[in-house]
């Protein structure tokens, strides 16, 4: 049956390439008429253990949203395997995934609570939907369960009848979390769950998420661009740049002694309360285009403060630097 020694989720060499629409010339040009490919996720390995909380950090356009959609199985990978509890789920087409038993075990909290709630559904309708469709609950069993979950996310019962526009940002976030944890999934993906919230509410939601993980024993994949927040909830961190993982390791190590120049730049860009950050690393220029990138050069080259000729000749792969700490860089920082 299910092999308990396997990690909960194991993603191997997964790629997602999107063909780009070529700008319309009416007469097809004979030569070089190959469609350009956007390499959104380009050979990513990741694994998440049972009960583990993993952070995925990167800036917009780095492919983290695509990676998330591959893992939630609402998008089909171009290549690679996705195994969940030892079973291959990467091969199940996304259009059929709503009806497989794994659907209820992989759930997600969305970034913008306003956008991710149907404006015509009350909080109760929203929370009820997965319970009805995937949990086969109805009648009093359903309404009991809804109220239990509302209590779990500390949402007052009287708010359940409200529509999203009648709820505050924090309350909407709770509805989104309630919907995601209603079926007690074993893997919960959190896509910037606090990005749209005020700081004062953010703290409450982060505490709630930490409590829920303990109570329900879920694994988290926490996606964010804010390392300060990722660090609060995650055991392990992965940093993504242009479709690839450039550094991964225990949160503490990555945070305190980043090895990849991009991680260092990312960390130093976060404004801290300490006033003027010392020795800031600033990235110049724009990222390389993810459309048909040159496979023979480092994608960070051009913005990298340490870039050398070697970086244009081969693309670095993830190399273990210390136990559990891997970096994809030709010239990693020393610990």
């Amino acid at each position: 049956m299910i092999d308990d020694t396997q990690p909960l989720l194991q993603v191997e060499q997964v790629r997602k390439l999107f063909p780009l629409k070529t700008a319309g010339s009416l007469v097809p040009l004979r030569a070089a008429r190959r469609t350009a490919l956007l390499h959104a996720v380009d050979g990513v390995d990741l694994s998440i253990g049972r009960g583990e909380s993993v952070g995925l950090v990167g800036e917009s356009g780095c492919g983290k949203s695509t990676l998330v959609r591959l893992i939630t199985r609402t998008l089909d990978p171009t290549e690679g395997s996705i195994r969940f509890r030892g079973e291959d789920i990467g091969g199940i087409p996304a259009s059929r995934f709503a009806r497989v038993p794994q659907r209820k075990l992989i759930q997600m909290v969305f970034q913008d609570p306003t956008d991710s709630l149907n404006p015509r559904y009350t909080a109760r309708d929203t929370i009820a939907e997965p319970l009805r469709l995937l949990g086969n609950l109805s009648g009093t069993a359903l309404s009991d369960r809804i109220e239990a979950i509302a209590a779990l996310v500390q949402m007052p019962r009287e708010l359940l009848g409200r529509f999203p526009h009648q709820l505050s940002g924090g309350q909407k976030a709770r509805v989104g979390i309630a919907r995601a944890v209603a079926l007690e999934p074993s893997l919960l993906i959190l896509d910037e769950p606090t990005a749209a919230l005020d700081v004062s509410v953010q703290a409450v939601i982060l505490h709630l998420l930490a409590d829920l993980r303990e109570k329900l024993g879920m694994s988290y994949l926490f996606v964010s661009h804010d390392l300060n927040i990722v660090r609060l909830l995650c055991d392990r961190v992965m940093v993504m740049y242009l479709g690839r993982i450039v550094e991964s390791g225990p949160a503490r190590q990555v945070f305190e002694a980043p090895r990849h120049p991009y991680t260092r730049a990312l960390l130093s860009a976060i404004p801290g309360l300490g006033g003027e950050a010392s020795r800031r690393i600033r990235l110049e220029g724009d990222p390389t285009s993810p459309v048909d990138p040159d496979p023979g050069r480092c994608r960070f080259h051009g913005r990298c403060p340490k870039g050398q000729d070697a970086c244009t000749r081969s693309s670095p792969s993830l190399v273990q630097m210390a136990p559990g700490h891997a970096v994809a860089c030709h010239f990693p920082e020393s610990a």
Binding site: R69, T72, T74, S95, A98, R99, R103, K104, I106, Q107, M108, F110, Q111, D112, D115, S116, L117, N118, P119, R120, E129, P130, L133, L134, G176, R179, A180
Partner: peptide, 24 residues
């Protein structure tokens, strides 16, 4: 977002169209 969320709640594409998008 709510369409993607509906997918994760177990809706098929036809159900999303009928029960999530149509009312909107």
């Amino acid at each position: 977002g709510f369409v993607e969320a509906a997918r994760l709640s177990g809706n098929t594409e036809a159900r999303i169209l009928a029960f999530h998008l149509f009312p909107n």
